[in-house]
């Protein structure tokens, strides 16, 4: 039971991070390998707000989200759009965007190390335990989960019921048809990329409440988010959430029952299973 609940709580934040990546990959078609660094940056911002200005991480979200949105929007417009325009094929764009976002990832790690040093950082916010079903859990984990759920739900409602959301979904399904019905694909892609980045950064701020981060840990989160996206299916919100929960529970179980040093190995075994048996994602239709 303890494993299940801890896993679900962790999975909630994972889901948010993976949703951010999924928006970027599913709609803007850029596999953003600097995603984890933006997460860490979000965490840094929350850390800094809490320790330097005594602002609670929850309140800091109000600031983190728009800044991350603008930053990611600019990254797409300035750095990535030229690659999209010059790409001769989907494959060429894939290689270019992988290299470019890896470049950004390393550059961001370098910059963050220069700004904040290479050490670990964490802070105690709502660190008191609460009791559920006889076991105790950190309040901060609970708060992070609830916030992740609210933001995820908000995002889902926005995508499902607004015109802008409809545009993004159309673009995700079929870019060339989206263009035919008058959707400005560049603007919509930039919007999706910015939004995805904002969601990821918020996820980072939430995770920093209960998780010790350092400047170079981003790549680990990128990998986890990617595994979740691939497991859940590109562009599939429901799949992403389910996959995130599975990963959260699986990691917690391995850490508790076998060895905490094997969490990534556990994630990889899951990933391998998906690649072998359901490469189209948990809920994806198998092309026959």
């Amino acid at each position: 039971m303890f494993i299940l609940i801890t896993g679900l709580l962790l999975g909630g934040t994972y889901a948010l991070i993976a949703l951010g990546l999924n928006l970027q990959y599913g709609v803007a078609r850029i596999m953003n390998l600097a995603n984890g660094e933006l997460l860490v940056a979000g965490g840094f911002a929350a850390f800094w707000a809490y320790t330097a200005a005594q602002v609670s991480p929850v309140a800091a979200l109000v600031l983190v989200a728009p800044i991350a949105f603008v930053l990611n929007w600019l990254i797409y417009r300035i750095m990535l759009q030229p690659l999209v325009s010059r790409a001769k094929s989907r494959g060429a764009l894939e290689v270019d965007s992988i290299l470019a976002t890896f470049g950004m990832s390393f550059a961001l790690v370098g910059i963050m190390t220069a700004l904040f040093g290479g050490g670990y950082f964490n802070y105690a916010y709502l660190a008191q335990p609460v009791d559920i079903f006889g076991s105790s859990y950190g309040q901060n984990r609970l708060v992070a989960f609830v916030l992740a759920a609210i933001i995820g739900l908000g995002l889902w409602l926005w995508l499902s019921y607004t015109r802008a959301g409809l545009r993004l979904r159309a673009l995700a399904v079929n870019p060339s048809s989206a263009r035919l019905v008058g959707i400005d694909t560049r603007a919509a892609s930039a919007l999706a990329f910015g939004l995805g980045g904002a969601v990821t950064a918020v996820g980072g701020a939430l995770i920093s409440m209960f998780f010790t981060l350092d400047a170079s840990v981003g790549i680990l989160f990128t990998m986890k988010a990617l595994i979740i996206v691939i497991m859940g299916g590109v562009g599939d919100i429901r799949g992403t959430i389910v996959a995130a929960m599975i990963l959260g529970i699986c990691e917690t179980a391995v850490a508790r029952l076998i060895d905490p040093g094997l969490t990534l190995a556990a994630a990889y075994v899951l990933f391998l299973g998906v690649l072998l048996f359901r490469p189209q994602g948990l809920f994806g239709k198998k092309p026959t």
């Binding site: 690659l83 470019a100 890896f102 470049g103 950004m104 390393f106 790690v109 190390t113 220069a114």
Partner: peptide, 20 residues
Amino acid sequence: PNQTLLLLGVVFLLIVYVLP
């Protein structure tokens, strides 16, 4: 020694944008 990763990142970007 702290800037090796930054270097790596910059060279990556250089290859993509300047030296394909």
